Computed example of a mutant assay.
Amino acid sequence: MKLKKAIGKIFPVLDSDKRKKTVVRSVLAKNQTNKGVVNIHRHDKNNIGDYFCAPHLYFEQLQNTALDISDFRLKNKSKVANWIDKVSDNSLIIGGGGLLNIRYFEMQLNLFQELNNKGKKTVIWGAGHNAIDYKNFNLNPKYNVDITKFGLVGTRDYNMPNEWVPCVSCLHPIFDQKFTEDKEIGVLLGKKSTKNKILLNKISSYPNTSNMSSLEEMVNFIGSTNTLVTDSYHAMYWAMLLNKKVIVVPTTSKFFDFKYQPVISSFENFENDLNKTQSYSGILEECREVNLKFADKVFDYLNL
């Protein structure tokens, strides 16, 4: 039975890799143009952070340009054909989200890098590294693609050797609302953590929610909390935009490279680190200004 399960896991992976390589070859075989623009990211409405980190939601010039970076691995032939055509026919805005240094998106990023040699205009906007082995990443920080092979690059990673452009979700008007704090400490869990019954029991005495809710619910929860404990990148980011104190339980390298560092801890020890937290002012204004300036560069580069 164990052998059967192991084989069952191997063959779907091999089949998926075969399909993806076929898509890559199909794109590279096509004539590449820059007729319009597509904004490629993880277009998943069930993941609040992934969905709201895309520039197409915040600029009129980019409306209706969304393309899911994961669609190229689908079995639906018409959707895959659409992906191939959209990538081949248009300039590419890649991001935001944790698209770099993670296996799930490596083949796509390598494809986008190679398209530079075929005259494709490419922009990385607010994407960032997402290495699971984050301890080793910090010892030798580099991306899994050559960012010099993209036309214009701004990543959310402050210490990397390129222009810093934080997540564009800072432009959402929800952060202009006023909130009343009624919670000293709140815990906001990522999707995977919500399945950990031991963890759920440990934090049950604290107000808590997850990133599987809506944007409004997440931001309202953060806004009403003085100190947020979270293993969600966007919960961390949005809390800092709202001048909250933040303790992060890291799951990948993405938590270590924001310009303003939260307290790094664990769900086992965060209570001992509460006195280390601090809030920062002016982050919302700064992040918005950086994105608007970068947008000017992008629209000039893409002739939009």
Rank of each mutant, 00 (worst) to 15 (best):
S214M: 01
G126R: 03
F52N: 14
L74Q: 07
L139Y: 03
Y51R: 08
K118A: 04
D257N: 15
H43V: 00
R25Y: 05
N101H: 07
H56W: 10
V229D: 08
N243Y: 07
V249Q: 01
M212G: 09
N208S: 09
T227D: 05
Q61S: 14
D231K: 12
Q32E: 13
N208W: 06
E286L: 09
E271F: 00
N303R: 14
Y158A: 10
S78Y: 01
N226M: 13
K244F: 08
N275V: 08
K77P: 04
L74W: 03
V246S: 09
N243M: 13
N76A: 09
S253T: 02
N272F: 14
L292M: 15
N101E: 01
P141E: 00
Y237W: 13
G154V: 00
S279Y: 12
F52T: 08
N117R: 12
N201T: 08
T22S: 15
V165S: 04
F294A: 09
I222H: 13
F105I: 04
K195M: 11
Q63F: 03
A29Y: 00
P161R: 02
D300W: 10
Y134R: 02
G36Q: 03
A6K: 14
V290I: 15
N138P: 05
N34A: 09
V145H: 00
A131N: 02
V165W: 12
L304G: 03
Q261D: 05
M236V: 09
C53G: 05
S78K: 14
D15S: 10
R42A: 14
F105K: 06
R288S: 03
F11Q: 07
N211M: 05
V246E: 10
L188Y: 10
C53R: 00
L3P: 11
G96H: 06
F258P: 03
S78L: 10
V290D: 09
K4A: 13
G119N: 07
A54C: 13
P161N: 00
V38N: 08
L62K: 09
S253W: 00
V24D: 03
S91T: 08
L189H: 02
I283Q: 04
Q32F: 06
